[in-house]
Amino acid sequence: MSSLIGKEGIDIELKAPADKFFDMICNTPNQISDSSADNIQKCAALDGDFGNNGSIVYWNYVHDGEPKVAKEVVEGIDRKNYLISYRVIEGDVMKEFKSFVVKLQSIPKSQGEGCIARWTFEYEKLHEGVSFPKSFLELGKQVSKDVDSHLTQGD
Rank of each mutant, 00 (worst) to 15 (best):
143 V>A: 08
139 L>P: 09
96 E>W: 11
136 F>T: 02
65 G>A: 00
19 D>N: 10
143 V>L: 11
54 G>Q: 00
111 Q>K: 11
81 N>S: 12
94 M>K: 15
84 I>Y: 06
113 E>S: 13
100 F>M: 05
98 K>Q: 15
88 V>N: 11
74 V>D: 06
69 V>D: 07
59 W>C: 07
77 I>T: 09
112 G>N: 10
16 A>Q: 06
47 D>W: 07
119 W>N: 11
39 N>M: 00
65 G>Q: 06
27 N>C: 07
16 A>H: 07
17 P>G: 09
138 E>S: 13
37 A>W: 09
73 V>W: 04
46 L>T: 10
65 G>N: 08
122 E>N: 07
29 P>T: 01
56 I>E: 07
144 S>I: 09
149 S>C: 14
139 L>I: 01
141 K>R: 15
17 P>A: 10
45 A>T: 00
35 S>N: 06
85 S>E: 15
90 E>M: 01
49 D>P: 07
27 N>F: 09
113 E>G: 09
76 G>Y: 10
148 D>F: 10
144 S>W: 12
146 D>M: 11
20 K>A: 15
117 A>Y: 01
110 S>F: 05
15 K>Y: 00
96 E>I: 03
68 K>E: 12
102 V>G: 01
44 A>C: 10
75 E>C: 13
141 K>N: 15
23 D>C: 10
146 D>C: 14
132 F>E: 08
42 K>R: 09
81 N>L: 04
12 I>D: 01
16 A>R: 02
87 R>V: 08
106 S>W: 05
44 A>E: 14
121 F>A: 04
17 P>T: 08
113 E>F: 13
52 N>A: 15
60 N>Q: 12
36 S>I: 11
109 K>H: 05
101 V>N: 13
30 N>G: 14
115 C>G: 09
49 D>F: 12
36 S>Y: 04
146 D>G: 14
82 Y>P: 02
26 C>E: 06
131 S>G: 11
21 F>S: 08
91 G>V: 01
38 D>R: 04
100 F>A: 05
93 V>K: 08
39 N>G: 00
89 I>Q: 02
140 G>C: 02
30 N>I: 01
115 C>Y: 11
18 A>L: 04
64 D>W: 00
57 V>P: 04
92 D>Y: 12
72 E>R: 05
94 M>T: 13
147 V>F: 04
130 V>F: 03
64 D>M: 15
88 V>P: 03
93 V>Y: 01
100 F>L: 06
128 E>N: 07
96 E>P: 03
37 A>C: 07
44 A>P: 00
35 S>T: 11
37 A>S: 15
122 E>M: 06
22 F>S: 09
128 E>Q: 13
136 F>N: 14
30 N>R: 08
25 I>W: 03
71 K>C: 09
115 C>F: 08
138 E>F: 03
108 P>S: 08
72 E>Q: 13
120 T>E: 14
13 E>A: 14
120 T>V: 12
104 L>P: 01
94 M>Q: 13
101 V>Y: 05
62 V>W: 02
28 T>Y: 10
89 I>T: 13
12 I>T: 14
40 I>A: 03
